[in-house]
Protein backbone atom coordinates (compact mmCIF):
# COMPACT_ATOMS: atom_id res chain seq x y z
CA UNK A 1 0.00 0.00 0.00
CA UNK A 2 1.59 3.26 -0.98
CA UNK A 3 0.67 6.82 -0.37
CA UNK A 4 -0.34 8.29 -3.69
CA UNK A 5 -0.25 12.05 -3.23
CA UNK A 6 2.98 13.83 -3.99
CA UNK A 7 3.35 15.95 -0.87
CA UNK A 8 2.84 12.84 1.23
CA UNK A 9 5.63 11.10 -0.64
CA UNK A 10 7.91 14.09 -0.23
CA UNK A 11 7.24 14.22 3.50
CA UNK A 12 7.93 10.51 3.83
CA UNK A 13 11.14 10.82 1.89
CA UNK A 14 12.27 13.67 4.09
CA UNK A 15 11.59 11.65 7.22
CA UNK A 16 13.50 8.72 5.85
CA UNK A 17 16.37 10.85 4.71
CA UNK A 18 16.66 12.16 8.25
CA UNK A 19 16.48 8.66 9.69
CA UNK A 20 19.08 7.52 7.22
CA UNK A 21 21.39 10.33 8.21
CA UNK A 22 20.88 9.55 11.88
CA UNK A 23 21.71 5.92 11.26
CA UNK A 24 24.67 6.47 9.04
CA UNK A 25 26.33 9.61 10.41
CA UNK A 26 27.94 7.94 13.42
CA UNK A 27 29.16 5.22 11.11
CA UNK A 28 30.66 7.83 8.80
CA UNK A 29 32.48 9.36 11.75
CA UNK A 30 33.93 5.92 12.31
CA UNK A 31 34.93 5.51 8.68
CA UNK A 32 36.42 8.97 8.56
CA UNK A 33 38.56 8.43 11.62
CA UNK A 34 39.84 5.16 10.19
CA UNK A 35 41.17 7.17 7.25
CA UNK A 36 42.67 9.92 9.38
CA UNK A 37 46.34 10.22 10.09
CA UNK A 38 46.95 9.06 13.66
CA UNK A 39 48.78 12.13 14.92
CA UNK A 40 46.07 14.37 13.49
CA UNK A 41 43.42 12.33 15.24
CA UNK A 42 45.15 12.66 18.60
CA UNK A 43 45.74 16.37 18.16
CA UNK A 44 42.57 17.63 16.46
CA UNK A 45 40.01 15.11 17.59
CA UNK A 46 37.24 13.48 15.59
CA UNK A 47 35.56 14.99 12.57
CA UNK A 48 33.53 13.87 9.59
CA UNK A 49 36.24 14.76 7.12
CA UNK A 50 39.68 13.31 7.67
CA UNK A 51 41.97 16.22 8.61
CA UNK A 52 44.85 14.46 6.98
CA UNK A 53 43.99 11.48 4.81
CA UNK A 54 45.90 8.31 5.50
CA UNK A 55 45.55 4.67 4.54
CA UNK A 56 48.03 3.56 7.18
CA UNK A 57 45.49 1.76 9.30
CA UNK A 58 44.31 -0.45 6.45
CA UNK A 59 47.78 -1.08 5.13
CA UNK A 60 48.82 -2.09 8.63
CA UNK A 61 45.90 -4.46 9.02
CA UNK A 62 46.32 -6.24 5.74
CA UNK A 63 50.09 -6.37 5.87
CA UNK A 64 50.35 -7.52 9.42
CA UNK A 65 47.79 -10.16 8.97
CA UNK A 66 46.94 -12.25 5.94
CA UNK A 67 44.65 -13.92 8.40
CA UNK A 68 42.07 -11.30 7.65
CA UNK A 69 41.58 -12.68 4.17
CA UNK A 70 41.44 -16.23 5.52
CA UNK A 71 39.09 -15.12 8.23
CA UNK A 72 36.70 -13.77 5.61
CA UNK A 73 36.73 -17.20 3.99
CA UNK A 74 35.80 -18.93 7.25
CA UNK A 75 33.10 -16.40 7.99
CA UNK A 76 31.49 -16.69 4.58
CA UNK A 77 31.51 -20.47 4.70
CA UNK A 78 30.06 -20.61 8.19
CA UNK A 79 27.43 -17.99 7.39
CA UNK A 80 26.28 -19.89 4.31
CA UNK A 81 26.08 -23.33 5.89
CA UNK A 82 24.65 -22.01 9.13
CA UNK A 83 21.96 -19.92 7.47
CA UNK A 84 20.75 -22.69 5.19
CA UNK A 85 20.58 -25.23 8.01
CA UNK A 86 18.98 -22.76 10.33
CA UNK A 87 16.23 -21.66 7.96
CA UNK A 88 15.52 -25.28 7.11
CA UNK A 89 15.28 -26.39 10.73
CA UNK A 90 13.30 -23.34 11.75
CA UNK A 91 10.74 -23.62 8.99
CA UNK A 92 10.23 -27.34 9.53
CA UNK A 93 9.80 -26.74 13.24
CA UNK A 94 7.56 -23.69 12.99
CA UNK A 95 5.09 -25.03 10.46
CA UNK A 96 3.53 -27.79 12.60
CA UNK A 97 3.32 -25.31 15.46
CA UNK A 98 1.10 -23.14 13.32
CA UNK A 99 -1.31 -25.94 12.35
CA UNK A 100 -4.42 -25.91 14.48
CA UNK A 101 -4.93 -29.63 13.92
CA UNK A 102 -1.51 -30.46 15.40
CA UNK A 103 -2.39 -31.60 18.90
CA UNK A 104 0.90 -30.81 20.66
CA UNK A 105 1.31 -27.32 19.33
CA UNK A 106 0.86 -25.57 22.65
CA UNK A 107 3.26 -27.88 24.35
CA UNK A 108 5.94 -27.41 21.73
CA UNK A 109 5.43 -23.67 21.61
CA UNK A 110 6.07 -23.67 25.29
CA UNK A 111 9.00 -25.99 24.77
CA UNK A 112 10.52 -23.41 22.44
CA UNK A 113 9.65 -20.51 24.61
CA UNK A 114 11.23 -22.12 27.62
CA UNK A 115 14.59 -22.20 25.85
CA UNK A 116 14.47 -18.45 25.50
CA UNK A 117 14.26 -17.88 29.22
CA UNK A 118 16.37 -20.58 30.76
CA UNK A 119 19.82 -21.54 29.76
CA UNK A 120 22.31 -23.64 31.61
CA UNK A 121 25.02 -21.08 31.23
CA UNK A 122 28.26 -21.16 29.37
CA UNK A 123 30.22 -23.72 31.31
CA UNK A 124 27.75 -26.62 31.06
CA UNK A 125 27.18 -25.91 27.35
CA UNK A 126 30.89 -25.84 26.80
CA UNK A 127 31.47 -29.09 28.63
CA UNK A 128 28.72 -30.78 26.67
CA UNK A 129 29.84 -29.58 23.26
CA UNK A 130 33.49 -30.33 23.85
CA UNK A 131 33.33 -33.48 25.96
CA UNK A 132 30.27 -35.23 24.54
CA UNK A 133 30.28 -33.96 20.96
CA UNK A 134 33.97 -33.11 20.54
CA UNK A 135 33.46 -30.12 18.31
CA UNK A 136 36.30 -28.03 19.70
CA UNK A 137 38.48 -26.62 16.95
CA UNK A 138 36.25 -27.78 14.13
CA UNK A 139 34.13 -25.78 11.74
CA UNK A 140 31.02 -27.21 13.42
CA UNK A 141 31.93 -25.31 16.57
CA UNK A 142 31.15 -22.12 14.67
CA UNK A 143 27.83 -23.45 13.40
CA UNK A 144 26.18 -25.53 16.11
CA UNK A 145 26.46 -24.01 19.56
CA UNK A 146 23.77 -21.48 20.24
CA UNK A 147 23.19 -19.99 16.83
CA UNK A 148 21.53 -22.65 14.75
CA UNK A 149 18.05 -22.23 16.16
CA UNK A 150 16.62 -19.37 18.03
CA UNK A 151 13.30 -19.61 19.80
CA UNK A 152 12.53 -16.09 18.78
CA UNK A 153 12.75 -16.90 15.07
CA UNK A 154 10.67 -20.02 15.49
CA UNK A 155 7.95 -18.04 17.17
CA UNK A 156 8.15 -15.25 14.58
CA UNK A 157 7.82 -17.79 11.83
CA UNK A 158 4.95 -19.54 13.56
CA UNK A 159 3.08 -16.27 14.00
CA UNK A 160 3.63 -15.44 10.35
CA UNK A 161 2.22 -18.80 9.25
CA UNK A 162 -0.69 -18.32 11.61
CA UNK A 163 -1.54 -14.93 10.20
CA UNK A 164 -0.82 -15.47 6.52
CA UNK A 165 -1.59 -19.03 5.57
CA UNK A 166 -5.35 -19.40 5.23
CA UNK A 167 -6.59 -22.66 6.72
CA UNK A 168 -8.90 -23.11 3.74
CA UNK A 169 -5.94 -23.25 1.38
CA UNK A 170 -4.24 -25.98 3.38
CA UNK A 171 -7.48 -27.87 3.74
CA UNK A 172 -8.13 -27.69 0.00
CA UNK A 173 -4.68 -29.00 -0.79
CA UNK A 174 -5.18 -31.83 1.65
CA UNK A 175 -8.43 -32.81 -0.04
CA UNK A 176 -6.54 -32.77 -3.34
CA UNK A 177 -4.39 -35.48 -1.81
CA UNK A 178 -1.35 -33.36 -1.10
CA UNK A 179 0.87 -34.64 1.76
CA UNK A 180 2.06 -32.43 4.57
CA UNK A 181 5.54 -31.99 3.08
CA UNK A 182 3.93 -31.19 -0.24
CA UNK A 183 1.72 -28.56 1.35
CA UNK A 184 4.71 -26.99 3.05
CA UNK A 185 6.75 -26.99 -0.11
CA UNK A 186 4.14 -26.01 -2.68
CA UNK A 187 1.79 -23.79 -0.76
CA UNK A 188 3.28 -22.48 2.44
CA UNK A 189 6.79 -21.64 1.34
CA UNK A 190 5.85 -19.60 -1.73
CA UNK A 191 3.57 -17.53 0.47
CA UNK A 192 6.23 -17.08 3.11
CA UNK A 193 9.06 -15.57 1.12
CA UNK A 194 9.16 -12.27 3.01
CA UNK A 195 9.46 -14.07 6.30
CA UNK A 196 12.00 -16.55 4.95
CA UNK A 197 14.03 -13.66 3.59
CA UNK A 198 13.81 -11.80 6.88
CA UNK A 199 14.81 -14.77 8.92
CA UNK A 200 17.70 -15.73 6.67
CA UNK A 201 18.85 -12.17 6.96
CA UNK A 202 18.69 -12.19 10.74
CA UNK A 203 20.31 -15.61 11.06
CA UNK A 204 22.95 -14.71 8.51
CA UNK A 205 23.77 -11.55 10.43
CA UNK A 206 23.98 -13.59 13.60
CA UNK A 207 26.54 -15.89 12.03
CA UNK A 208 28.41 -13.06 10.40
CA UNK A 209 28.76 -11.05 13.58
CA UNK A 210 29.43 -13.98 15.88
CA UNK A 211 32.73 -14.07 17.69
CA UNK A 212 31.62 -15.79 20.87
CA UNK A 213 31.76 -19.29 19.44
CA UNK A 214 35.27 -18.63 18.23
CA UNK A 215 36.19 -17.31 21.63
CA UNK A 216 34.86 -20.37 23.40
CA UNK A 217 35.43 -23.22 21.03
CA UNK A 218 38.36 -22.31 18.82
CA UNK A 219 41.96 -22.06 19.88
CA UNK A 220 43.38 -22.97 16.49
CA UNK A 221 43.85 -19.62 14.81
CA UNK A 222 43.41 -21.10 11.35
CA UNK A 223 39.69 -21.37 12.12
CA UNK A 224 39.27 -17.83 13.40
CA UNK A 225 36.44 -15.99 11.73
CA UNK A 226 36.90 -12.38 10.75
CA UNK A 227 34.97 -11.11 13.74
CA UNK A 228 37.02 -13.30 16.08
CA UNK A 229 40.23 -11.85 14.72
CA UNK A 230 38.96 -8.31 15.07
CA UNK A 231 37.56 -8.93 18.50
CA UNK A 232 40.79 -10.42 19.72
CA UNK A 233 42.71 -7.35 18.64
CA UNK A 234 40.26 -5.11 20.46
CA UNK A 235 40.17 -7.16 23.64
CA UNK A 236 43.95 -7.16 23.75
CA UNK A 237 43.88 -3.38 23.63
CA UNK A 238 41.41 -3.30 26.48
CA UNK A 239 43.54 -5.59 28.55
CA UNK A 240 46.68 -3.58 28.01
CA UNK A 241 44.87 -0.41 28.91
CA UNK A 242 43.57 -1.74 32.14
CA UNK A 243 46.11 -1.40 34.89
CA UNK A 244 46.32 -5.17 35.13
CA UNK A 245 48.93 -5.30 32.42
CA UNK A 246 51.31 -3.01 34.21
CA UNK A 247 50.79 -4.58 37.59
CA UNK A 248 51.99 -7.96 36.35
CA UNK A 249 55.11 -6.65 34.74
CA UNK A 250 56.57 -3.39 33.67
CA UNK A 251 57.01 -3.10 29.97
CA UNK A 252 53.72 -4.86 29.50
CA UNK A 253 52.29 -2.02 27.47
CA UNK A 254 53.27 -3.38 24.11
CA UNK A 255 52.62 -1.89 20.69
CA UNK A 256 48.97 -0.95 20.87
CA UNK A 257 47.15 -0.64 17.60
CA UNK A 258 46.20 3.02 17.26
CA UNK A 259 42.69 4.41 17.42
CA UNK A 260 42.65 4.64 13.64
CA UNK A 261 43.38 0.94 13.39
CA UNK A 262 40.61 0.09 15.83
CA UNK A 263 38.22 2.07 13.67
CA UNK A 264 39.50 0.38 10.53
CA UNK A 265 38.93 -2.97 12.19
CA UNK A 266 35.30 -2.09 12.70
CA UNK A 267 34.88 -0.92 9.13
CA UNK A 268 36.44 -4.10 7.75
CA UNK A 269 33.97 -6.20 9.71
CA UNK A 270 30.93 -4.38 8.39
CA UNK A 271 31.85 -3.55 4.82
CA UNK A 272 31.19 -6.95 3.23
CA UNK A 273 27.67 -7.01 4.63
CA UNK A 274 26.98 -3.61 3.15
CA UNK A 275 28.21 -4.89 -0.18
CA UNK A 276 26.27 -8.16 -0.07
CA UNK A 277 23.09 -6.90 1.53
CA UNK A 278 21.66 -5.09 -1.52
CA UNK A 279 22.02 -8.26 -3.60
CA UNK A 280 20.26 -10.17 -0.90
CA UNK A 281 17.64 -7.52 -0.77
CA UNK A 282 16.68 -8.24 -4.35
CA UNK A 283 15.20 -11.50 -3.16
CA UNK A 284 13.79 -9.73 -0.21
CA UNK A 285 11.92 -7.37 -2.51
CA UNK A 286 10.77 -10.24 -4.71
CA UNK A 287 9.46 -11.92 -1.64
CA UNK A 288 7.51 -8.79 -0.91
CA UNK A 289 5.82 -8.87 -4.30
CA UNK A 290 4.80 -12.47 -3.93
CA UNK A 291 3.55 -11.77 -0.45
CA UNK A 292 1.46 -8.87 -1.69
CA UNK A 293 -0.06 -10.73 -4.63
CA UNK A 294 -1.47 -13.50 -2.51
CA UNK A 295 -5.07 -13.35 -1.53
Amino acid sequence: MVVKNKSGQIALNIIFTLLTIAAVAPFLLLVSSSFTDEATLVRDGYSFLPGKFSLDAYIYLFQSSMKIVKGYGITILVTLIGTVLSVLFTTLFAYPLSRKEFPFRYFFSFFVFFTMLFNGGLVPSYMMWTQTFHIKNTLWALIFPGLLMNGFYIIMMRSFFNANIPDALVEAARIDGCGEYGILWKIVLPLSKPMMATISLMVGLGYWNDWMNSLYYITDEKLFSIQAILNTIISNIQFLQSSQGSSVASGAAADLPSVGIRMAIAVIGILPILVIYPFFQKYFVKGIVVGGVKG
Binding site: V24, F27, A266, L274
Partner: peptide, 10 residues
Protein backbone atom coordinates in the same frame (compact mmCIF):
# COMPACT_ATOMS: atom_id res chain seq x y z
CA UNK B 1 19.90 -0.97 3.86
CA UNK B 2 21.10 2.08 5.67
CA UNK B 3 18.92 1.89 8.76
CA UNK B 4 20.28 -1.58 9.36
CA UNK B 5 23.89 -0.40 9.58
CA UNK B 6 23.85 0.41 13.31
CA UNK B 7 22.66 -3.09 14.04
CA UNK B 8 25.73 -4.50 12.37
CA UNK B 9 28.18 -2.67 14.59
CA UNK B 10 29.35 -4.50 17.67
Amino acid sequence: TVILIPFLIS
